[in-house]
Amino acid sequence: MDKECSMYKEHVESGKRKVTLSLTVNGRHVVRDVDPNMTLLHFLRDNLKLIGTKEACGEGECGACTIIMNGKAVTSCIILAVEAEGAQITTVEGLAKDGKLSILQEEFISQDALQCGFCTPGFLMSTRALLDNNPNPTDEEIIEALSGNLCRCTGYIPILKAVKRTIERERKESGF
């Protein structure tokens, strides 16, 4: 009987037993016991106190809870924490380095790409995932990658500008 099969047996016998979860969040290895029914979003916010990731719709429609999991932008509100076993996760807290904001964050500020700011962590993470996979996207590719993020106050033009300026600056910085 392999490890997970015996784990399942223990669940049945002991009611809803917690599951030991081991993953990497913003470069830090984390091990915690979690309830099987806890969402990844609540795990990040409640257990790890990483409250930059926001919950709005709670159903994967608005993108406020977007994080990067194994290189892909995903909505953490509709993922179970236990599904993230072994995953590499980056949240908005992982963007700034050594107390200095990333270029992406600086450009969101310089372009006034936020007002209330609730959607911003999600936009930042969707953009980061896009640029990590495709450092030179077309406007259409940017819009497609951000299609799952809703902003209800700023509108999308300043966000698009901030993303494009980020692309320029990151390109210069990488020497191309």
């Binding site: 997970e4 784990m7 399942y8 809803k16 309830d35 099987p36 029914n37 609540h42 236990v82 076993e85």
Partner: peptide, 9 residues
């Protein structure tokens, strides 16, 4: 928040 269930993978 949601049903309490066991998780098996």
């Amino acid at each position: 928040m949601i049903s309490r269930f066991t998780y098996f993978k």
